[in-house]
């Protein structure tokens, strides 16, 4: 049965159904409802909710809990995600699986609390130090976001990587009917063979991001890179919407992509054939597919709630095969369908 749910709450419930029983977090708008939902819900499912003293502590609690091989998660919004970058780098180095929900708001600095997509660089290029990557998933509807939670945990454990669900304040705050996913049975989850649980009858295990010998640390890094390569080969996801006959293809993700879907309806009614290419994995980015698409379309328009972040990856994919244009607003201002339609018209006409 479908339920009308807020984005933050739907994501939280889906995470619990995917088997998450450990949540650490710190209140920040526009995602505090997720934290509050976990505070209420975790005790009901015999899980653990802990409000930390800061996002710095949160991410380190996540580190500790992830060391034990359990499904752990947190949620935050942009300034909080910045504070977590230290721990994210350590977790990536220690190859720990965990889920981060970043409900992006306007920045930089304290910014505002309205929707934004200006943490794309931070999430996909590594906001912390070192050569690391995290898998970044960008749902565009609440249903997609809820469906994604199980997949996120599966990816995190399959590759021992961090997974960020990158959404904006709009997906966090809006309501939409959601069909909640099935419950994952706890017995389906096997304790990983690297988990720190106390060396009872086995050799002690160590989980760290550390080796002072550069050649040893290089080996660790090459192992990470090997993982990232596998993820890039196997886990790229995207959606194509009406691109077959498009004279202009819009590249957009998350909330922007769903707004663009409405624009496409408008544009086609006025005789402009517009298509949408929507990266679902922002890292790994669908370079190859976008490269192919760009051979057959003259104009590509990237639309973002930023002043141009994903467009850099779009350019890397397209090279010179078609003209790459950009339209974006940031700081919490959401481009409306009419504005985007105008931007399209300017390019086509």
């Amino acid at each position: 049965m479908k339920m009308l749910m807020k984005g933050t709450e739907a994501i939280a419930e889906a995470a619990i159904r995917a088997g998450c029983r450990l949540y650490f977090g710190y209140p920040i708008t526009p995602q505090s409802e997720l934290t509050e939902y976990m505070a209420k819900r975790m005790p009901e499912v015999k899980g653990t909710f802990l409000q930390s003293e800061s996002e710095v502590a949160t991410v380190n609690m996540l580190y500790g809990a992830a060391c034990t091989g359990r499904k752990v998660m947190t949620s935050t919004s942009s300034p909080g995600f910045s504070l977590m970058q230290e721990g994210i780098s350590y977790m990536a180095g220690a190859e720990l699986p965990a889920i981060f929900i970043n409900v992006m708001r306007g920045g930089p600095g304290l910014g505002d609390i309205q929707p934004s997509q200006s943490d794309y660089f931070q999430s996909t290029k590594g906001g912390g130090h070192g050569d690391y990557r995290m898998i970044v998933l960008a749902p565009h509807t609440l249903q997609e976001a809820t469906n994604m939670m199980k997949e996120a945990f599966d990816l995190a454990f399959k590759y021992r990587m961090l997974v960020t669900i990158l959404v904006d304040g709009m997906i966090g705050q809006m309501m939409e009917p959601v069909e909640l996913p099935e419950w994952t049975k706890p017995e389906e989850f096997e304790e990983p063979n690297w988990a720190l649980t106390g060396a009872n009858g086995r050799k002690p295990r160590k989980v760290t991001s550390f080796d002072l010998d550069p050649y040893e640390l290089e080996k660790m890094n090459l192992r990470y890179q090997e993982t990232y390569k596998k993820v890039s080969q196997n886990e790229v996801k995207y959606e194509e919407f009406k691109i077959e006959d498009a004279e202009i293809t819009v590249v957009a993700y998350g909330t922007m992509a769903r707004i663009v879907k409405t624009v496409i309806d408008y544009a086609r009614k006025s005789g402009i054939k517009v298509g949408l290419f929507r990266p679902i994995t922002l890292w790994p980015f669908p370079y190859e597919r976008l490269s192919e698409i760009s051979k057959n379309v003259k104009n590509i328009l990237t639309v973002e709630m930023s002043y141009g972040q994903m467009v850099e990856d779009v350019k890397l994919a397209v090279e010179e095969k078609s003209d790459v244009h950009f339209y974006g607003r940031s700081a919490g201002v959401v481009p409306t369908p009419a504005e985007i339609l105008d931007a399209i018209k300017k390019i086509v006409r």
Binding site: L22, A57, M61, A65, C67, L196, A199, P204
Partner: peptide, 19 residues
């Protein structure tokens, strides 16, 4: 069994483990 925390964060890491 053991790990290394980031500078100063050991009590938070230990909290996560204990919980």
């Amino acid at each position: 069994d053991g790990t290394v925390a980031a500078h100063g964060r050991a009590p938070a890491v230990a909290t996560g483990m204990k919980r």
